[in-house]
Nucleic acid binder design. Structure first.
Lengths: 269, 269
DNA sequence: CTTCTTGTTCCATTATTTGGAACTCAATTT
DNA sequence: AAATTGAGTTCCAAATAATGGAACAAGAAG
């Protein structure tokens, strides 16, 4: 109708398209998040672009190595992504500072230790330290999971004050991964309040059946960075008593990481 | 002069800029390859863009999560890279097919096993299986190293015919990582000829002092995909005799991976 | 053989990027 | 205190790149 409405729309849209790059990255996401190689036509139907346009966009992405094509002409995520990520991971300051503490915590508990950062309402796992049973290292690194049903995610959320918390979870959709998953903001809110009091979060099979964890929040003083550290294991080994027993250790690890971050960041500038 | 020359130039240029995306990815590279957080002005001096332009480009990259800024305003690789890479890695067909063979080879030799693919004249490591001593898993995954001084790289190159080999290494610059590193195409060429005859490549401290390896080539029948698998270890443990002893095992692993790839790709289509 | 489906190329139109200059805001020097 | 420098940000006419419709290939299905 009028131009004001148009402007409002623009501002409301979360991922406001960053010109050309935004459209291209949306395609990369589309291909990377799909769980099978995508044909040209598959992508065409999911992205509403004209054929000619889409074709050129994909060509550019392939040329830059962000996507690849297999011999059937299907599109896959490109290897250049791995290459770029490996460097960013190896030199990530937060991760390198936290690493020794993760190892200590792993040694103390014998179970798998995770480090994750909050990104909107998702947790992205930055590191993982496993014990002997080397099932598959790394598999979790880089993974994104919902904050509301993971220990690390809930711990990170608990560092927010009420107003920031509500702003962040507004409009969040709850997916019932298990019968214990929170189904509404109300349930999550109550849990978060407990977590604030307790200083650590429990995940009792909320994200995956048979998997429990205890996590503690890590955050910068201005809450610009929200993260968490957790100890995870199978429910038959990780009983409620174990979770209680490990809670102080996890809190201590989180505290140590926060302190190291401060002393690392302070003097630098 | 004439248009032919122009066309030739275009074809010769490796990273021909893909319009907007090419320029932006060049910036991502610049930031990701630097070994310290980059200030706006640092980037300004390295990329020859006007200030205004560069500023908008970086803003877009940050908005899309490919880059991030720390509290000092320095630019770092973004966490979204990790997230995208993790998905591409987890579902990489070649890697998943190869994985069991890498594990077997690791068990047979007790040393670290690598899987890498050739990209131009660089090897990118796709997977790594280590034994007990869990120094730092993953660290190598995604890493790019020159083909001419790594076992995997030389093995992959050996699958090329003479013409393709010369075309690929034309203009290659040799950096002397150790005293054993090849310094010229001539030396590399001779080595490659031996590798072709032998069916496997040796790296005797050519890339890193004190590190030796034996590698075998993996390639699709049309040589569109060139890769290699290797067993690596410290020189004091990995003697020449060991390398000879492991050579058949490595060749067998490579052969098995090739066969699995074929039977996987064949029926699919 | 004809008709779909899938993928590729072309080019005038349209929208985005460009780059120079002007501006802000500290920190440093005079 | 005023002036100068350095670092980063914003603006807008001009240059450039992206767009999208249509036409063109090339198989596969009917």
């Amino acid at each position: 109708m009028n131009s004001r409405q148009g402007d409002d729309m623009k501002e409301i849209r979360r991922g406001r398209e960053t010109g050309t790059l935004g459209k291209l990255m949306a395609l990369v996401d589309l291909v990377a998040l799909a769980d099978r190689p995508m044909r040209f036509t598959d992508i065409l139907s999911l992205s509403d672009q004209p054929r000619g346009t889409l074709h050129r966009q994909l060509s550019h992405l392939v040329e830059e190595g962000l996507l690849e094509t297999d011999r059937d002409g299907c599109y896959l995520p490109g290897i250049r992504l791995l290459s770029l990520a490996s460097r960013s991971w190896a030199r990530n300051e937060f991760r390198t500072v936290a690493e020794p503490h993760l190892r200590l915590l792993q040694a103390q508990t014998g179970e798998t230790v995770h480090l994750g950062v909050l990104r909107g309402t998702e947790v992205i796992y930055l590191d993982k330290v496993e014990g002997r049973q080397s099932v598959r290292m790394y598999s979790q690194i880089g993974n994104a999971s919902p904050a509301y049903c993971t220990g690390v995610g809930k711990a990170a959320l608990s560092a927010l004050d009420d107003i920031s918390f509500e702003a962040r979870v507004a409009g969040l959709e709850f997916h019932a991964y298990t019968e214990h998953t929170h189904r509404s903001v109300a349930g999550l809110r109550a849990d978060i309040e407990d977590i604030r009091r307790r200083g650590c979060a429990f995940d009792r099979e909320e994200h995956e059946s048979g998997i429990c964890c205890v996590a503690a929040p890590i955050h910068s003083d201005d809450n610009e960075m929200l993260a968490g550290v957790s100890v995870t294991g199978p429910a038959y080994r990780v009983t409620s008593e174990k979770l209680q027993e490990w809670a102080p250790l996890v809190r201590a690890a989180a505290a140590a990481i926060m302190q190291d971050m401060q002393s690392r960041l302070g003097p630098r500038r």
